[in-house]
Design a protein around this nucleic acid. Structure first.
Lengths: 145, 145
DNA sequence: GCAACTGAAACCGTGTCGATTACGTATGTG
DNA sequence: CACATACGTAATCGACACGGTTTCAGTTGC
């Protein structure tokens, strides 16, 4: 299980919008153009941009010359927000386990779940240090790593 | 894509072995017993234990009174090793993208990949602070978080 | 009115994963 | 030695999720 691929697409789209300096409706970029750059299907892009829109990261307008644009500065969009916008994501799988009656069988799942939450938190912390702007000059990413 | 569920099973199995104090061949625990605790299928457990065995974390012996046991102390087994043993895992999906001709379309995937590697590294770092022994007294996990 | 574009739904093909079954092999017991 | 126990591996099945495509409805600008 994995919402795989949505995050990369989202990151790519945001970076592309930042590169195109799409900061307002009159510079909107059509999903077809985004799709050509990823590359993937326009519908796939729209599925992602819809989620990003709900998260308040981008705006979109229908109609001729419509498309998507950034609502925030590239420096202000960190990747952890992108990840959260795109999926609730359990990276290491879920731990829906537990055998009644066995004390260890009941406690372990909770402990494992705790470890996975810790891992998720670590991811969020790390991604919060990387912004969309950083993606455009990838040297920053290396430096931060 | 995700090797989901293997990591939770592996963590549970290791914790169970530690709980059972299976530190040598004469205290081996059968896969059926592990499977009953997870709970899952004995074969699933063996698939996981086979990988853990290749990673040198546990030993296994066939035959009557056979089973698996720990080769290292519970405190010495950190979860990042477990994760690596169980899958090569790209938690956030792969980023096999790039459109030739477009400078931004070519650079962005690398930057995104860099971000995902950073996230993976963050996970490994965090998990390396948690041992199998910690899973048994989960209070430690909370404290470390 | 027409063309361009988003948004949402439906559908399909595919890949992956867990579960199950089955077979071969190794080990201990009587 | 015969037999039960148990691992290891392969094959198969069904469920599920995801990406890709198509289609339709609604919006916007010329």
């Amino acid at each position: 299980m994995s919402d795989s691929q949505k995050f990369p697409v989202a990151a790519h789209a945001l970076a592309y919008l930042a590169h195109k300096k799409a900061f307002s409706a009159d510079r909107a970029v059509a999903s077809a153009e985004l799709a050509a750059s990823v590359p993937t299907n326009p519908v796939v892009v729209r599925r992602v941009t819809a989620m990003l829109g709900k998260a308040g990261l981008i705006g979109a307008r229908a109609g001729a010359n419509g498309g998507a644009w950034l609502l925030k500065a590239p420096e202000a969009i960190t990747l952890d927000v992108v990840l959260r916008a795109v999926n609730g994501c359990a990276h290491l799988g879920v731990a829906p386990k537990g055998v009644k009656g066995c004390p260890v069988g009941e406690k372990i799942p909770d402990a494992v779940r705790g470890a996975m939450i810790a891992a998720d938190t670590a991811v969020a912390d790390r991604l919060s240090q990387i912004s969309v702007a950083d993606l455009l000059n990838s040297a920053t990413v290396e430096a931060a790593a």
